[in-house]
Deep mutational scan, measured.
Amino acid sequence: MALNTPQITPTKKITVRAIGEELPRGDYQRCPQCDMLFSLPEINSHQSAYCPRCQAKIRDGRDWSLTRLAAMAFTMLLLMPFAWGEPLLHIWLLGIRIDANVMQGIWQMTKQGDAITGSMVFFCVIGAPLILVTSIAYLWFGNRLGMNLRPVLLMLERLKEWVMLDIYLVGIGVASIKVQDYAHIQAGVGLFSFVALVILTTVTLSHLNVEELWERFYPQRPATRRDEKLRVCLGCHFTGYPDQRGRCPRCHIPLRLRRRHSLQKCWAALLASIVLLLPANLLPISIIYLNGGRQEDTILSGIMSLASSNIAVAGIVFIASILVPFTKVIVMFTLLLSIHFKCQQGLRTRILLLRMVTWIGRWSMLDLFVISLTMSLINRDQILAFTMGPAAFYFGAAVILTILAVEWLDSRLLWDAHESGNARFDD
C-alpha cells in the first residue's frame, strides 16, 4: 500500500549564491595573561575582544583620537594649579581661619623630617597626573615632529594605576569627618577644581587605549598563520617573532617567553612588605597634641575612634588600611606557593584573586592621604596640633611594595603550573 505524501511548494523562490571570495581570516594573537594562541577576527570600533580561555580583555573598544586626548590633557593642565594650590577646605580653629590644600599637606610631611613619605604622596597625587598630561601632550606634538614615541607609550600603561586623584578625593571626605570634632569646616574653591580634575582624569584614563596608539604610530604586520613560536610582548602586546637582537619589532624591548626574574622580584617585594606591615600596624601612625597632652593612634585605634562619629567612614578606612593590605599579602603568598608547588586545582579562583588584588591594591594609600591633609588643617603649635607617627613611612612603603609585587608577577606562570593543553579552566 503506497502512502500519498503531499508536496510542499515554497511560496518564495530560494536563491543560492556561491561564495565568490575567501572568507576573511583572523590574525593570530597570544593572550598576555595566559599565553593562549588564538585567531582574533577583525574588530570594529566600539567592540571589545576577550581571550577565549581566561576571559582577559585583549582589545578595548573604547578609543579616543589623539586630538581629543590632547584637549583633555590641556584642560587638566589648566585645572591643576587651582586643584593643588587653592584651598580645598576652610576650618575655623580657636577663632582663626585655616586653609588646607594639597601642596601644603605634602610640605608639612616633608617639613617634619619625613621627606620619603611626603614624596610618596607627591608622586601619586601630583607627579603621576602631571606625567600623564605631559605624556599625552608629548605624543600629540611628537607625532607631528617625527619624534620617538616608544618610551612614552611604554610608560603610559604602567602609569595608570599610580594616578590616585580619586583616592585622594575620598581622603578629603575622611579628613573632614575627623577634623569636624575640633573645628567648623567649609569647602574651599580649590575643592571644585579638584573634583573637576578627578572627573576629567577618570574619563581620560578610561578612554586612553595605549594598544590602539601603538597600532597608529607603529603598525606591524600581524601573524596570519598559526605558529607556536609566536611570542607576545608584555610592553606593547604585539604578537610576532623577535628581531635579530631578540627584541620586539614594535617597542624594541627584549621579547622573552616569560617575564625575567618574575618570581624572585615578586618574592622579594612580598617578604619586604610583610616585614614592614608589622611596625606599620604596631607603631603610632598619627599623633595629636591637645592642650599640651599627647595622644597617639595606631591604624586600628584611629579607626575605632573614627567609628564613634561615623561608622560608615570608619568601615571604608578599615577596608583600605587593614583589610586590603593583608588580603593582598595572603593572596600573593598563596599564588606564589601554588606556582612553586605546581598546583593544578582552583586555577579559576587564583586568576580571579590576582585580578582582584590588581584592582584594589592602590586604595591602601588612602590613610597616607588623610594624614597629609589633616596635617595641613590642624597645626596650632602646642594648643592643638596633628602630626604623623613613625608607622606612616612603614605603611606607605608596604603598600608600594605590594603594588610592585602584583605588577611583577607574570600571570602566565600560573598556567605553566597548571596542566598543559587546557582550553578551559575551572575549579
Score class of each variant (00 low, 15 high):
Leu94Ser: 01
Phe393Lys: 13
Pro6Phe: 12
His261Tyr: 04
Asn143Lys: 14
Leu230Val: 06
Phe123Ile: 01
Leu257Lys: 08
Gln264Asn: 01
His261Pro: 01
Ile351Glu: 10
Leu277Asn: 05
Leu335Met: 09
Ser364Trp: 02
Met1Pro: 00
Pro6Val: 13
Asn281Leu: 03
Glu22Asp: 10
Ser308Leu: 08
Glu215His: 09
Ser45Pro: 13
Ile371Tyr: 01
Arg221His: 07
Ser273Gln: 04
Leu200His: 15
Ser338Arg: 13
Ile351Met: 11
Ala398Asn: 08
Ala56Ile: 12
Ile253Trp: 01
Thr5Ser: 12
Met375Thr: 14
Leu277Lys: 08
Glu161Leu: 14
Ser364Val: 00
Trp107Val: 03
Gly361Lys: 01
Val179Cys: 14
Leu263Arg: 05
Ala83Pro: 11
Ala2Thr: 13
Val203Leu: 14
Ala398Arg: 02
Asn44Ser: 11
Gly346Asp: 09
Gly26Val: 12
Asp99Arg: 11
Leu205Trp: 15
His252Asp: 03
Pro151Asp: 04
Leu66Gly: 13
Val331Leu: 14
Val152Trp: 01
Thr334Gly: 09
Pro81Leu: 06
Arg216Val: 08
Cys31Arg: 00
Arg260Tyr: 06
Gln382Tyr: 12
Ile403Tyr: 01
Lys265Tyr: 01
Thr358Met: 13
Gln345Asn: 05
Val406Phe: 09
Gln180Met: 12
Gly293Met: 12
Ile287Cys: 04
Tyr182Leu: 13
Thr224Cys: 07
Asn101His: 05
Asn379Ala: 04
Tyr394Trp: 10
Ile58Tyr: 11
Glu419Val: 12
Asn44Asp: 15
Gly302Phe: 01
Thr358Trp: 12
Ile43Asn: 14
Val232Thr: 15
Gly85Arg: 14
Leu165Phe: 07
Cys248Ser: 00
Met375Ser: 12
Arg30Glu: 02
Val357Met: 13
Arg25Pro: 11
Thr67Asn: 14
Met375Val: 13
Pro6Asp: 08
Pro242His: 06
Leu23Ala: 12
Cys51Trp: 02
Gln345Gly: 14
Gly346Ala: 15
Asp243Leu: 03
Val313Ser: 12
Leu3Asn: 13
Leu271Ser: 08
Phe425Asn: 15
Cys236Met: 00
His90Glu: 06
Asn44Gln: 09
Gly85Asn: 11
Leu234Gln: 08
Thr298Gly: 03
Asp60Ala: 09
Trp162Glu: 01
Leu271Phe: 07
Leu353Gly: 13
His237Tyr: 08
Asp227His: 04
Met304Phe: 09
Met147Leu: 06
Lys229Met: 07
Tyr50Phe: 07
His207Pro: 15
Met103Gly: 03
Arg424Met: 10
Val406Lys: 11
Phe123Thr: 01
Asn422Tyr: 13
Pro10His: 08
Leu66Lys: 11
Leu368Arg: 00
Ile126Val: 10
Glu407Val: 07
Val121His: 07
Gly292Phe: 08
Leu93Cys: 02
Arg59Ala: 12
Leu37Glu: 12
